[in-house]
């Protein structure tokens, strides 16, 4: 279904376990070990950072908004689970993904304009491309994605819940940034959007501080905050398990009792959350109060807390590996196979 995540093609066909994802990628490499051997590439997360930057450059030139940029990145991720990157010109794929995502997200860009901007942006690797190459690549992209083009994004969860948790504008901004950053990880292929959205909110509440106004990428530097996030999740998990036990296992796992839309912010959760907070120990630190509200909410709403723990770890380890990222290394590695295989023509 188009707007219901649980029935969506995203959940049915594009949500994998880590093992499945690893197996698919291994299979692609095994198809042509020579190719892989001849053109070594840095770790995938570094390639993702590089591609994310290219997406951002192109989107900025075209004035494309974040929503379309996010969808484009998911398209590219899906595509590269089916096609070995060394067989493609990643710059062409970046441009094509963005072109297609803009149409899907109702902010279409003219194909000629995209080609024109991409040529200016990537003179060495894009010069041989034209509108017909991009149009052809669009067929390739859609075909590999089996025409499954509707992507559910975590931004919606954030917009719906920022009021629920009284996020400050800075916290909302930090959560937004964390969502932007998660497109450089495998998380969009591993977890439902609401789990990622909630993780981003958690990170924003626990890690954001005023000195670190850049948010997101720096948020993880706040190790005290991270401990707090981990504690919060452990606490929510315990609370949720106790509750399930008390209810005689009524809220069995596996039956999603909420959807990423609408019902999240449904009255039940908010009123209960508010009441419990009022009964509590009247915390003076607003941050702790906010945390408590968040953990109560989690414990009561049958959210996959395991998943959130894993998401938190993924994002944090991503921020760690971000430190070793070197733009030029990735660029040269990609350029090597493009040039050697004539993929720029």
């Amino acid at each position: 279904m188009a707007a219901n995540y649980w029935e969506s093609t995203q959940r049915r066909y594009w949500q994998f376990t880590k093992e499945e994802l690893a197996a698919m990628r291994q299979k692609l490499e095994d198809e042509d070990p020579n190719l892989v051997h001849m053109y070594p590439l840095p770790q995938l997360r570094h390639i993702n950072i590089y591609l994310n930057r290219q997406f951002n450059h192109l989107a900025k030139r075209l004035g494309v908004r974040q929503q379309a940029l996010a969808t484009a990145q998911v398209y590219l991720k899906r595509f590269y689970t089916r096609v070995e990157i060394r067989r493609t010109n990643p710059y062409l794929l970046v441009a094509t993904s963005l072109y297609l995502a803009c149409k899907m997200e109702e902010c279409p860009q003219h194909i000629r304009l995209i080609v024109q901007e991409a040529r200016v942006l990537w003179p060495e690797t894009f010069h041989g491309q034209d509108t017909s190459k991009l149009g052809e690549c669009e067929f390739f992209l859609i075909s590999e994605m089996s025409s499954q083009l509707i992507v559910h994004q975590p931004y919606r969860t954030l917009t719906q819940l920022q009021g629920e948790f009284n996020l400050t504008p800075e916290e909302s901004q930090a959560a937004w940034q964390a969502i932007n950053d998660h497109y450089m990880t495998d998380l969009p292929l591993l977890y439902p959007p609401h789990i990622i959205g909630l993780t981003a909110i958690l990170l924003a509440i626990t890690c954001y501080n005023r000195q670190n106004a850049a948010g997101g990428a720096n948020a993880a530097g706040n190790s005290g905050g991270l401990v707090m996030a981990a504690n919060a999740l452990a606490h929510a998990q315990a609370q949720s398990q106790a509750r399930a036990a008390a209810m005689g296992g009524n809220s069995g796992p596996g039956t999603p009792n909420l959807t990423p839309q609408g019902s999240f912010a449904g009255g039940n959760f908010s009123s209960q959350g508010g009441r419990e907070l009022g009964d509590g120990s009247n915390p003076t630190d607003p941050k702790i109060a906010k945390m408590q509200r968040f953990t109560n909410w989690l414990a009561e709403s049958n959210i996959d807390i395991e998943g959130m723990i894993d998401c938190t770890q993924e994002i944090i380890s991503f921020y760690d590996c971000h430190e070793q990222y070197e733009d030029l290394v990735v660029r040269d590695n990609i350029k090597r196979f493009i040039k050697a295989r004539g993929l720029d023509k």
Binding site: A2, E7, S8, M104, S147, Q148, L149, I150
Partner: peptide, 10 residues
């Protein structure tokens, strides 16, 4: 694009 995407979900 819309028709392809929507029909694939419905």
């Amino acid at each position: 694009v819309r028709e392809m995407a929507l029909c694939s979900e419905l």
